[in-house]
């Protein structure tokens, strides 16, 4: 009698200990993931919450198990970075099928985005959301970033990062409002028609150099004032042919006007 109760007590203690460990783990994971917006250690509850959100908001196109459908690609193995990019920039969920998902205000909170990301990350290995350390550009080389930007990004995103047109209604978006994390995720995952610049072909140090250069483009003041969209000869030409020639014509009319 006493021996069984003792044994039962031992078992109870073990259960309590296990429960305590699990709860600490879950709590720690929840705290760190929300604090750092990182999903490296996703808790099961977060994944479950993400799965629920996914089935409500994403499964129509991407399939109940994210396996993809005729309306949307499979999300297995795209990683948390892709989800964070698409949802935090408001591109997903899409309002209507189109050649390209336009940017709009995000409809999910940061917490919900983290849950969605951890759910998709749990489906298969893929790039994680870059940490603050990945985005730290204090040691990055600005000039190198400029060369890399012009070689790899400027063909679509314009030499000043203002974006540009592609075929069939697609376009490379303006980068002036993009955060470093979103830009890093875009390079890592190649959203929509953008090619992938994975870490093997464009190592993290070079990505940080590009981030530093884009930050310079976003923040550096323009000595000449009105940039006319930084589109080059198109807008500048329109401006000088209308405003400039218009002013010259007005002066010519004044010179030829009859004097009373």
């Amino acid at each position: 009698m006493t021996s069984t109760s003792v044994r039962r007590n031992k078992a109870t203690g073990l259960v309590v200990l296990l429960a305590g460990l699990v709860m600490t783990g879950v709590g720690y994971a929840a705290v760190t993931s929300t604090a750092e917006a990182s999903v490296t250690t996703a808790s099961q509850t977060q994944i479950d919450q993400g799965k629920q959100l996914f089935q409500q908001g994403c499964a129509t196109c991407h399939g109940l198990a994210a396996q993809g459908s005729s309306e949307g690609p499979s999300l297995i193995g795209v990683g948390a970075a892709a989800v964070n990019f698409q949802v935090s920039t408001g591109r997903m969920p899409m309002a209507a099928p189109a050649n390209q998902a336009p940017q709009k205000p995000p409809i999910y909170t940061d917490e919900q985005i983290a849950a969605l990301a951890s759910y998709v990350a749990s489906l298969g290995p893929g790039p994680a959301v870059p940490s603050d350390e990945d985005l730290n550009t204090s040691d990055a080389n600005l000039a190198e970033g400029g060369v890399l930007f012009r070689t790899n990004c400027a063909q679509c995103h314009n030499f000043a990062g203002r974006g540009g047109a592609l075929s069939n209604g697609k376009y490379a978006p303006n980068m002036m409002g993009a955060t470093p994390r979103q830009i890093y995720e875009a390079m890592l995952t190649g959203p929509q028609n953008m090619p992938v610049f994975n870490d093997k072909t464009l190592p993290p140090a070079q990505k940080r150099a590009i981030l530093k250069y884009i930050n310079e483009l976003q923040t550096a003041p323009s000595p000449g004032g009105l940039a006319l969209g930084s589109l080059g000869p198109v807008t500048e030409g329109i401006f000088i042919w209308t405003a400039g020639l218009g002013a010259l014509l007005a002066v010519a009319v004044w010179i030829g006007a009859k004097v009373r």
Partner: peptide, 10 residues
């Protein structure tokens, strides 16, 4: 193996 599907390299 450095390039993944969707990669572009100049």
């Amino acid at each position: 193996e450095d390039m993944q599907v969707g990669s572009l390299v100049s």
